[in-house]
Design a binder for these strands. Structure first.
Length: 245
RNA sequence: GCUCGUUA
């Protein structure tokens, strides 16, 4: 079962969801147990492909054969609905989770928070952030990255800096994605000096910038009309062996 | 073996 699970997961990551579902049916033919994890993998594959209807069919099927959807199943589906802008359905599922006594975890909150951040709904995002704190669910790097992102997009970079600091104070170790989100906020703000300061800071922490970091900086410089400096970024990238895209 | 975050 684990062998199949690993294979199915691998197929899905390659975007070969239909091959994955063939394997899924093959394992059934062989009489191997199909756990919630394997269902989740297949559901995730179809969610990524945007075929939510198929994903839902598998979820209904797992219920039918007596496998309880797990917190991850719900998180998966809530996330997919949110990405499609089907917020009402996502919220209905959250309600269903609460009714069933499932305890929302950090991932659930992160999905909701990020969903609202993507919509630029700062109020709602922070309302959920407060709620998770109130319920004793510890925010993660992902939570903070989403909040830093939305603050940057809302021209509230100073608040983004504060959130970053708060995350560090809570003992979270900032990673590349979190740094990139903060750098982007300052680039959007036109504060390239601060953006490069953060770059220096992350390198001091032995976190190597990636193409997202450089793309972000390039865009920031171009927005200010500093095309020559932007051109230097390209050289810096090749010097470091990062492929420009 | 399964879920969430950053640029374009």
């Amino acid at each position: 079962s684990y062998t199949y699970g690993t294979l199915i997961s691998g197929m899905c990551k390659e975007g070969r969801v239909d091959d994955a579902s063939k394997l899924f049916h093959e394992m059934r033919r062989r009489g191997l147990a199909q756990s919630a994890a394997v269902y989740n993998t297949v559901i995730n594959g179809y969610c990524d492909k945007g075929e939510l209807d198929v994903a839902f069919r598998y979820r209904d099927e797992m219920v039918r054969v007596g496998i309880k959807p797990t917190l991850r199943t719900y998180n998966l589906v809530v996330h997919a609905l949110f990405m499609e802008g089907r917020n009402a359905e996502a919220c209905a599922l959250i309600k269903e989770m609460e009714e069933k006594g499932l305890v929302l975890d950090a991932v659930t909150y992160n999905i909701l928070i990020n969903g609202y951040c993507k919509e630029g709904n700062v109020k709602k995002a922070f309302k959920l952030f407060q709620e998770m704190l109130r319920k004793g669910v510890h925010p993660t790097k992902v939570t903070y990255t989403s909040l830093i992102y939305v603050l940057g997009k809302s021209s509230r970079v100073a608040d983004a800096d504060r959130m970053f600091k708060e995350a560090v104070e809570k003992g979270l170790v900032p990673d590349l994605v979190m740094y990139n989100a903060l750098i982007d906020g300052h680039c959007a703000d036109g504060n390239m000096e601060r953006a490069f300061e953060i770059l220096t800071e992350m390198e001091k922490k032995k976190i190597a910038p990636d193409e997202v970091t450089y793309n972000t900086l390039t865009r920031g410089l171009c927005l200010l009309g500093k095309v020559e400096e932007a051109r230097c970024i390209l050289d810096e990238m090749s010097r470091r062996g990062i492929k420009p895209d």
